[in-house]
Design a protein around this nucleic acid. Sequence first.
DNA 1: TCCTAGCTTAGACTCTGTCTAATGAAAGAT
DNA 2: ATCTTTCATTAGACAGAGTCTAAGCTAGGA
Lengths: 138, 138
Amino acid sequence: MSDLVTRLRRHAWRMTPQRRVIAETLDGAHVHYTADEILDRACRLMPEISRATVYNTLNEMVALGEVLELNLDGRSKRYDPNIEHDHHHLICDGCGATRDVHTLADPLDSLPGDERHGFAVAEASITFRGLCPDCRRS
Amino acid sequence: MSDLVTRLRRHAWRMTPQRRVIAETLDGAHVHYTADEILDRACRLMPEISRATVYNTLNEMVALGEVLELNLDGRSKRYDPNIEHDHHHLICDGCGATRDVHTLADPLDSLPGDERHGFAVAEASITFRGLCPDCRRS
DNA sequence: TCCTAGCTTAGACTCTGTCTAATGAAAGAT
DNA sequence: ATCTTTCATTAGACAGAGTCTAAGCTAGGA
Ligand SMILES: [Mn+2]
Ligand SMILES: [Mn+2]
Ligand SMILES: [Zn+2]
Ligand SMILES: [Zn+2]
């Protein structure tokens, strides 16, 4: 049983066959698919699934707090089922490869009170950029 | 004379009237306009300027390293002429207001070697999210 | 002046994502 | 079991952001 499916069942939310296929497609560690990649993979299991359902379902999973929506590159959004362990992302400027990374310190602690401008700051995410081993060589 | 225009003149890059208008529109501290906002403002000074030129010019300024491209919200990219002082961004989840912020520690230092996966990590940017004073009240 | 490289332009095009209106499935009530 | 109501799914139209193309236009060097 997919871990994401298990988490979704805890919510008052109909688990339809389409939603199950999307959740199983998206499940796993270090997964950062775009909506269209999820549609492609889901179509292998359920060829008649529609694009609108994939988009609707991903938005609902995000609203339920069980999936994170990432804007890493300004192109398509990516969906990350790994909400358990707080983590950040390291992206290769050459090929776009994305890795999960963990930091020593919580970035929220690095923002002093007089830099908060009266905001109730809830979250901080770091995007690290550089060149992956393959792209360094070439 | 706009500071951004001054910086751009140091490059081997033709300073046409269109490019000057775009650079003067984009110049300033704490500026984070979208391409369409820049087009609107530039049109007040030069009504016949084209959308393609605005997009081309912004991409060239980014390639020259004189302007930063920000992907803060997954909608339109924003352009930031403030490359001098390293800074990060604080965004209101309610209204989208964006503030420049400065951190105590460099986030690059919080990524240990065994979390770099062989990458040559060049840059780290933090996006802080929360509610601005206005959005907290309502 | 002429030539050439590079710049600007309108509009077509692509990609990503949302919306609509109709159909279809699920679950509680009877 | 059937009805009823609510919610989910679907195809396709639509919208926003950005890129590309082909043609004409400048600016500056020979
Ligand atoms: Mn991740
Ligand atoms: Mn800024
Ligand atoms: Zn790479
Ligand atoms: Zn706000």
